[in-house]
Each structure stands twice: as C-alpha cells, then as structure tokens.
C-alpha cells in the first residue's frame, strides 16, 4: 500500500454564482447567500432511521441527532436571517410526529429568531406536525426560485434538491465518489444533507435535460473544502 501524505491549508469555502447571485458553496453541504443572509439546505430526511425501523431494519436511531448537530453548526457559523429547507425534510409524513421531544426542542431553538421555510417534498408533502415555520411549494427570493424537484428543461435561477447528486472521478486508476453540488451557473442542485441519505451520480439519466453539459460543474465535497470539477472529467456509475 502506498500512501501519500500531504498537508494543505484549508481553503475558504468556495464562492459560486447562481443566476448572478453570489453564494458560498460550503463543504458541509449547505449553500449560503451572503447578500440575502439566506441559508439553503436540502433533503434532511429526518427520522429516516425510525422510518426504516418500522419495517424491520433496526438501524441506529441517531440520524436525526447527527443531522441536527451538523445543521446547528452551520447555522451558528452563518447566523442566517432566512433558512430554507428544500423539501424531504422528514423521511415520511409522520416523521415530525415521531420526533423525540429533545430533538423537537433543538429544532425549535434553531428556528427561533429567523424566517424558516419548509418547502414541500415528495416524502413530506404536508406541513410538519407541531413545528413552526412556513410550509410552501416553492419560494422566490431575488432572482432565484427555491423548489424541491428541479423543473424540467432550462430554468434560470433555480435552486433545487431531490436528486441527491454525487459525482465520480477516476484518478490514478482509482475511483473517488463524493456528494456534490451540481451547477451550470443558472441552476444549482444541492446535495442531500441528512445523515442517512444516499446519492445518485449527476450523469444518471434522472438529470437528463437539467444542465447545459458544457458548463456543468460538480462541486465535490471534500473533508474541508470543495473540489470543483468540470463535467468532462466526471464518470458515470
């Protein structure tokens, strides 16, 4: 086994633009728009563990705790005025009602003092039970529209989730797969944030027609930084 060891200074989170709006593409998986003081996070899938446990897969019941802890960290860093949860915030319709009281409290603390929007997702089409915040189908802010499922065809200024993008490159004969933000300058699809969420390669046919292939960039999530790789370098599968 060969292991190259290299130390690099941690780069500041990368700045990107979506339809002219500047945003920080944070390697922890959130998008922050400084001019709007707006933080977007997608596909939290809270209570996925208990959702699967109902069907006999007793995977550890700590996903909600893990997801909330990470969310807490980014919100503490950016202190946004507006938070948009881009849909599939809960893994199923009853997810919010299964939420442990401790977690409910933590979530409410995070929400306090800011505008919080729940975008309806396919997993959670209705407003989460007994939680503040406003539930909407989509939300327009400045030149952007935030919605759960990306709209078909070219759409200027869209920020969406739903697809759980990841990207894969092959370097030195080894394959590296990471979650990513996928963008072409006018649309940005966000990675899934939830602790138990899987991912789907941006070259999969589910993404067909969403991006201008020449300008597609996968912002792959590293440990401490984003690696921006052009569509031409990506591999399917």
């Amino acid at each position: 086994m060969n292991l190259a060891i290299r130390t690099t200074a941690i780069l500041p989170a990368d700045l990107v633009t979506v339809a002219g709006e500047r945003a920080v593409c944070d390697p922890r998986g959130v998008l922050y728009f400084p001019e709007l003081s707006l933080l977007a996070v997608s596909d939290l899938h809270l209570e996925k563990g208990s959702s699967l446990a109902r069907r006999g897969a007793l995977i550890p019941p700590y996903d909600t705790a893990a997801t909330l802890a990470r969310l807490q960290a980014v919100i503490a860093d950016y202190a946004p005025r507006i938070v948009i949860s881009l849909g599939d915030s809960f893994h199923d319709g009853e997810g919010a009602s299964r939420l442990h009281d401790d977690f409910r409290e933590r979530l409410e603390q995070l929400m306090a003092g800011r505008d919080w929007f729940w975008i309806a997702g396919n997993h959670d089409p209705d407003a989460p039970a007994d939680l503040p915040g406003e539930t909407v189908r989509e939300l327009a802010v400045a030149s952007l529209v935030f919605r759960h499922e990306p709209s078909k065809g070219q759409a200027g200024g869209e920020v969406a989730g739903h697809l759980h993008p990841c990207a894969r490159i092959v370097q030195r004969g080894r394959s590296v797969r990471r979650r990513c933000f996928a963008g072409d300058g006018s649309r940005m699809i966000m990675p899934a944030f939830g602790a138990y969420t899987g991912s789907l390669n941006v070259l999969d046919r589910a993404y067909a027609g969403l991006f201008n292939r020449e300008s597609l960039v996968a912002y792959m999530m590293g440990k401490d930084r984003i690696f921006a790789l052009p569509g031409a370098m990506l591999r399917a599968g």
């Binding site: 290299r6 490159i169 370097q171 990471r178 792959m220 690696f227 921006a228 370098m233």
Partner: peptide, 11 residues
C-alpha cells in the same frame, strides 16, 4: 485513505 489527495490532484 488518499481519496482526498486524489481529488486535490484532479482539482
């Protein structure tokens, strides 16, 4: 272990 390094190289 070196995935991060590979990504860095590619980037």
């Amino acid at each position: 272990e070196a995935n991060e390094t590979l990504l860095m190289e590619a980037a």
